[in-house]
Design a protein around this nucleic acid. Structure first.
Lengths: 125, 125
DNA sequence: TATTGTTATACTCTATAACTATA
DNA sequence: TATAGTTATAGAGTATAACAATA
């Protein structure tokens, strides 16, 4: 639990530096390599679909993402990161990586291996 | 990060089962063995003092905590868990412990030792 | 009929700024 | 003057229920 909270503090701090919430940070992470539907985003984040509407509204207002109609199903709206959003996502990814690395700075190779093994045993990410 | 999110999912689920937010869950955890001032709670949770007013209002409305004047300083309000709040905190503590234990079910003794060592190396909890 | 996304509504959580009561 | 707590206000995040458009 301590480890968990330490990581959350790191993520929250990195997000706050870019004036983002943890949810917006996770959204950008999802959009780095995908262009999911609203429903798919709700599934990823385990939120109700009605919550996604506002989330995407706010991200769109900031120019980080854009809505696009699905070519195959007129009911579906796809969401993609803009160039600005992708750039920010990339910057955040690097920052998070560095911060986690720093968190692990004092831990041995065997400790890291143990944690990786634990992570692998967890329910699907 | 995977480990961190897995723990957060556990905590959020346990809190939701009792119709509590993660913040209310943390509050109850704090009050298990303390009767802090409003300001001290703000420090623990790293939130603004104005946020604590509403947090305690809602917990008080649910009968989980009670405000009490400080005997030594008339400006200070102390917060203590009620019997109901303590009972709930205890139940939640057991539930969280069991869930984390389950999360670690497949991991070896050396893996656990590594994680404990990492936790010990982290900035003060 | 079932699914997708939105709207309307309500609540929690959080912060900033202004205020009061006390020290 | 400085500190503790509250209020007013604003915004993000979240859910439930009802709805329109499409499949």
């Amino acid at each position: 639990m301590q480890v968990s909270f330490a990581v959350q503090v790191v993520l929250t701090r990195v997000a706050a530096q870019q004036d983002l919430s943890l949810t917006q940070l996770r959204l950008l992470g999802i959009l780095r390599d995908r262009t999911p539907s609203m429903a798919a985003i709700a599934d990823f984040l385990e939120l109700d679909r009605s919550s996604i509407t506002g989330l995407i509204d706010r991200a769109e207002r900031r120019g980080l993402v854009a809505r696009r109609p699905s070519p195959s199903d007129a009911r579906v709206t796809l969401v993609e990161a803009t160039a600005v959003g992708l750039e920010l996502a990339s910057r955040i990814g690097a920052e998070v990586g560095a911060s986690i690395e720093q968190l692990l700075a004092g831990s041995s190779a065997t400790a890291r291996a143990s944690i990786e093994k634990l992570a692998a045993s967890l329910p699907q990410p």
